[in-house]
């Protein structure tokens, strides 16, 4: 464990806490993409299957349980909660996730470290995480002004993966045979999808006005 990875995990945790706070405090999920949340639930379930049969550390187990339970909790809020579910913008959140899930699954069947059930699903989760934010970014461009908590949520999600990139560089130079080119490639692409958001986020923050992405 190094400081970059720990900071990345904490940033990821913060993004989920910000999201839950937003939903709890405002009793609204306006501007949030349910499809992105569902994709993240698929990512966590398909990646953390090893939760049941390989113990790495208590930290690892606890964080995995938090990520899985929080993603389902958010989906429950957006689908079932009698107040929050009313504020979900179904008409705008129309990204066809099949266009993300199917190619990622095909790719994980072709490019993986080992052709086994858990390994393919793990690889699928790595590819899917790279594109899971797209429905949210598309929704962002449709709903012009977004609230601060949502933009903070997306910023923290991007920051978590950027910190993980520092972690990969650090581990590459400090550990002998550490190589995870699938994770590195996918993670780099994932962080790249946030770049334009980062640009407009910092621009709006400096001009101290509400963030609005050009459609």
């Amino acid at each position: 464990m190094n400081i970059f990875r720990f900071a990345g995990d904490m940033t990821h945790l913060c993004s989920i806490i910000v999201l839950l706070l937003k939903i709890q405090a405002t009793k609204s999920c306006a501007g949030l993409s349910l499809r992105t949340q569902e994709l993240y639930a698929i990512v966590f379930v398909s990646r953390y299957l090893d939760l049941f049969f390989t113990f790495i550390s208590m930290y690892n187990v606890i964080m995995k349980l938090i990520f899985i339970s929080s993603s389902f909790c958010i989906i429950w809020y957006m689908r079932c909660h009698r107040i929050v579910a009313q504020t979900y913008d179904r008409e705008q959140d129309t990204f066809r996730v099949a266009f993300l899930v199917v190619p990622c699954f095909m790719l994980s069947l072709m490019i993986n470290h080992e052709f086994s059930f858990t390994e393919v699903l793990w690889t699928f989760s790595i590819y899917l995480e790279a594109v899971a934010i797209l429905p949210q970014l598309v929704l962002l461009q449709r709903t012009f002004n977004i609230d601060t908590l949502t933009s903070n949520y997306i910023f923290l999600l991007g920051a978590y993966r950027a910190l993980y990139m520092l972690n990969w560089i650090y581990r590459y130079f400090t550990e002998r045979d550490y190589s995870q080119w699938i994770v590195w490639t996918s993670g780099t692409l994932q962080t790249a999808t946030y770049c334009d958001f980062f640009y407009y986020y910092i621009l709006s923050w400096r001009k101290n006005e509400r963030l609005s992405l050009p459609s």
């Binding site: 390989t54 790495i56 990520f67 470290h113 793990w122």
Partner: peptide, 10 residues
Amino acid sequence: SEEQRAKDEL
């Protein structure tokens, strides 16, 4: 194993 370690990240 190397595989084991590779999966130690979240």
